[in-house]
């Protein structure tokens, strides 16, 4: 059976997908995941999930947004100065970075 593996590099960080393993059961999957995915990269924790337990929907089936103009829901749309508060500036920066990524997909 195939298991997908998610690695967390340090406590408190997100578990992100890093690969998969073949294993007959969960216990072996945990062991193989350690050997194959937890040795080189800094690892604090691994999640292993049976492949068939993962649901997936992709851009062929769903409109994830970005196809219609929703400028009204982006901080960058509003022409007011966010520099008065560090946390608003940070949020705007994150949104701008996300917008650039979406733009480059076109």
């Amino acid at each position: 059976m195939r298991y997908e593996v998610f690695r967390q590099d340090k406590p408190g960080a997100y578990h992100t997908h890093c690969g998969d393993v073949h294993a007959p059961d969960r216990e072996m999957a945990l062991l193989f995941a350690q050997i194959q995915h937890g040795r080189r990269m800094q690892t604090n924790s691994l999640w292993v999930v049976p492949k068939e337990e993962i649901g997936e929907v992709d851009t062929d089936e769903a409109a994830f947004g970005g196809t219609t103009d929703k400028a009204y829901r982006w901080a960058t749309t509003y022409n007011v100065d966010a520099s008065f508060a560090e946390e608003i500036e940070a949020s705007e920066r994150e949104q701008a970075a996300e917008e650039r990524k979406r733009g480059s997909d076109d």
Binding site: G12, Y14, R73, Y78, I88, A90, S91, E94
Partner: peptide, 26 residues
Amino acid sequence: EPYAHAMDKICFEEGFHIKHGEDVLR
């Protein structure tokens, strides 16, 4: 940790809320 992770997403979105609020104020 689940609280902090929720905050990552919430703070990401709030920039729009507050800038929009300021835009109405302006």
